[in-house]
């Protein structure tokens, strides 16, 4: 069912990223997404960055609609369908979290839930530059240890977050790696964890229309990201020819990822 609710908070997270908060009593699990309707514009799948009764989505300016979302003021009505999809298993464990850019948004509520359950969480965060680091403080306050990489070296290590991951995997024992970000990044994370036999769980993004497992817009190999995902064990998707290489355009054409 769709509900229309006002935006109750708008938080500027980074120069290119904002969080919109809205009240919605439906139960959601970390990793799930909602279809966010901007009346008059479009409806987009958005992973929940906050999963409680006051939910939130964290949006990065990418396409024209997500740029438009950045201008939505407090009080503006938005439509919400969902929550939909699979979630992270937040039972206790030693968790390595690898977030690239706005990919960290979906990992943050999972980390909070896992930490509340007695897990240890190490968060490796990657961004283009210091100002674009997302939820560093939020994760730190929740009790995660933080490692940072930026493309320009303005915070943490200079370079890609995947370089940090190799070191973290070499020096620590983890039960699972949770990752969300560009698929080439997630592929590198999967490759780094494989020799250590550490399970990797990915949150994947595709263009969506129905979000009900019907229209096929989000097909990824034999899966539909809206119902079989967006959270997948890496061993189900890592070897798919599309993963990291192609996605479906709104027409259904296969285009480079």
């Amino acid at each position: 069912m769709r509900t229309v609710v006002p935006v109750v908070e708008r938080v500027v997270e980074t120069p290119s990223t904002i969080t919109l908060r809205f009240d919605d009593p439906r139960t959601a699990r970390p990793g799930q997404f909602v279809m966010l309707w901007i009346p008059g514009d479009d409806e987009l799948p958005m992973s929940l960055a906050y999963v409680g009764a006051r939910k939130g989505v964290t949006v990065k300016a990418m396409g024209s609609t997500s740029r438009h979302i950045l201008d939505i003021p407090v009080g503006a009505p938005v439509g919400i369908r969902g929550p939909y999809g699979t979630s992270f298993d937040v039972s206790p464990g030693r968790i390595l979290l690898v977030g690239g850019g706005s990919g960290t948004a979906v990992l943050a509520p999972a980390a909070e839930a896992a930490l509340a359950n007695g897990s240890t969480v190490t968060a490796a965060l990657g961004a283009t530059t210091r100002a674009e680091l997302l939820f560093e403080q939020r994760l730190r306050s929740a009790g995660a240890s933080i490692a940072i990489a930026t493309d320009d070296g303005s915070a943490g290590e200079r370079g890609y977050v995947t370089k940090l991951v190799e070191g973290l995997l070499a020096e620590n024992e983890f039960d699972v790696v949770w990752t969300c970000g560009p698929e080439v990044m997630m592929q590198k994370v999967i490759a780094a964890a494989r020799p250590k036999h550490v399970e990797v769980v990915c949150s994947v993004e595709r263009h969506m229309k129905c979000a009900l497992g019907m229209c096929d817009a989000c097909s990824l190999g034999p899966y539909h990201v809206c119902v079989d995902g967006p959270v997948f064990p890496a061993d189900r998707i890592a070897s798919l020819p599309e993963f990291g290489r192609s996605k479906r355009a709104p027409s259904g054409r296969s285009v480079p990822a």
């Binding site: 479009d42 987009l44 027409s251």
Partner: peptide, 15 residues
């Protein structure tokens, strides 16, 4: 020809 279809929302589900 390829066709993108309409923008979302494209679906309204009733119970």
């Amino acid at each position: 020809e390829p066709r993108d279809g309409y923008p979302n929302p494209t679906i309204e589900a009733y119970d």
